[in-house]
Each structure stands twice: as C-alpha cells, then as structure tokens.
Design a protein around this nucleic acid. Sequence first.
DNA 1: TCTTTATTGATAATGATTTCGCATTTGCGT
DNA 2: ACGCAAATGCGAAATCATTATCAATAAAGA
Lengths: 150, 150
Amino acid sequence: MERSTRQRTAIRNTIEQSERPLAPQEILALAQAEVPQLSLATVYRNLALLQEAGEISTVLLPGDSARYESVHLDHHHHFQCQKCERVFDIPGCVGDLLNSVPRGFVVERHEITLYGTCKGCGPTAKAGGKKRDVSGAATAHSHSHKSHGH
Amino acid sequence: MERSTRQRTAIRNTIEQSERPLAPQEILALAQAEVPQLSLATVYRNLALLQEAGEISTVLLPGDSARYESVHLDHHHHFQCQKCERVFDIPGCVGDLLNSVPRGFVVERHEITLYGTCKGCGPTAKAGGKKRDVSGAATAHSHSHKSHGH
DNA sequence: TCTTTATTGATAATGATTTCGCATTTGCGT
DNA sequence: ACGCAAATGCGAAATCATTATCAATAAAGA
C-alpha cells in the first residue's frame, strides 16, 4: 500500500502550507529544508501520486511549465509577477460574463491569468530581476479553504 | 536589408488571413500550399522577424506551446476546443473587473482562456478526438481590425 | 527483529520544440 | 546581367521539463 515517507510528507506539507502555486523546482528547494537529500525525481513521483489522490491540482500558466497547489482552495485565478516570476493566487472570479462566445461554442472551464508587479517587487522598472528565487515568501490571499463552484 | 521572399510572403499571408492563432506546424502546413518546399526552420526564422517587425504577436495558452496571430486585431481572448485542440479568438473582454487584486499588486496585463467544445466539434463526448489537424477551417469572430485598449 | 516491497536517489533517457551550421539559392541594387 | 549578402533547406544540435532505470534504502506488518 501507500507508505508514509519523510519525503512525501515534506512535499505534501510544502504544497499545503504554501500560499501560492509552486513549481517542482520550488517544491524541491523548499522541501529540502526538511529532507536535504530529497531528489527532484521524487518530487515528480509524489506530485503524480498526490494528484491521483486528489490532494493537489495542476496550475498551468501561459508559456510556463506546470505548478502545483492544494485543491482545498476556493475558485480563484492567478497573478504572475513579471519580475520575480512567482505566481500568486487571486481570490474570487470576474463572474460568468463568459457567455460572449460565438454561437455553437460551449464553455466548460476558464482560466484567467493576470500579469504585473507583485507586492514584494514593488512598482518599479517594467522588468529586470532575472529568474526565479525558488524560495519566496510574500502572500496574496487569506487561504480560505473549501467551498468551490463559481 | 529585409528581402521579400516567396516563403516570407506565404507565411505572413497565412497568419494574416487566419481567423485563429496558428502554431508553427500549422503555419508550415498551410503555407506549404503556396510554397511546397517550405521548411519549418524558415517558419521559425520568419516568425521571429515578423514579430520584431511588429506584425504578429505570440499567443500563449496554459500548458501549450506558442501560437501566432496578427497584431491587427482588437483586444480579445482565446477559446481552445478540448477535442480538436484548435484555438479560436473570442472578441471582447469581460471588463476591468480585475481590480480585485490584493494591495500592493499592480496588474498590467491579463490573459483569459476559455475551454470547451467548438462549433465544429459539436456538444458531444467530453473529449476524445486526439491531436490537432493542422489545417482547420471554422471561424469564431468577424475579424474586425484595429482599435485596441480595453 | 525479519521480510517484503514500496520508495528513493542519482542519472540516463525521452519527447517535443526551437535553434544552429553551412552549403546553396535568390532577392535586389548597380 | 553581376555580385553580394540575405534567406533558405535540411539535418544536426541544443533546450528543458518530465520520465524511466535500477541498485540501495526503509516503511509496515508478521
């Protein structure tokens, strides 16, 4: 059966406790604080397991590779900082104003991504600070759990 | 200086005349109707040039590779069919209801992607029809040019 | 504690997309 | 018509995220 390993627990906690979607690399870096020798392959293997178990969901952003977050979150969208590249959750939804599609098209799901500057990076230059920092701290929402459906 | 070649013209026309964003492979397939020996490398090289020239823009969808479309289009968003995987333009915008971001965050741009079933695929099974068809015909908007700002 | 086997770590392998290298072709100004 | 640099074709090479290998490790029940 499914065993409880230190690495799996670390990975799960890292995701569950994060206030924003994390990329595999970020998860690796953060979880290594708890399990130093943790391998990226293990992160991927567990992401797959946790996903099958329905504990986490995949967050896909335009032109970027997958990130993961807890499924125990209200319906929300994402904000990616154009400087630090980190992704934050934005609570709420713009509404069902999505009926403007042409005749014959049926919408089942939607994805909204906002781009700009995050709290941490402040309203300075348009861009600049290269690459991600893998750690990160800033928060964007109050982590209100449960109660889906938008 | 910049020369006018048959392949460049074919590529430009293909994109300009398409009613939806096209992936490099799709552009290759469509433009080969005009220039049979066209190479994929040439498509990529010209996409870069046309983009620098400000003629086309990149369309990025969550978890998918880049597509390209003319910049001469009103502000709009995209709809991807979950069956044929083709991407259509959806005119208009849900509005500036994007002020719901947390304090300290500044939104500069947004991206909205709708998922569902397109006109051509009809409201049948949830999914199924594998892979793209590279050609495609269906239309989703009236191609009204110019007049940005949303 | 012993046994079984899920799990891990390290690394090679994939698969897909995009870029390069280079010899050949071809616009385009003269 | 000439000449040269831009542009092309095609295959190799580079990226990159994700997956597969496989020997070694360590949960969990007996």
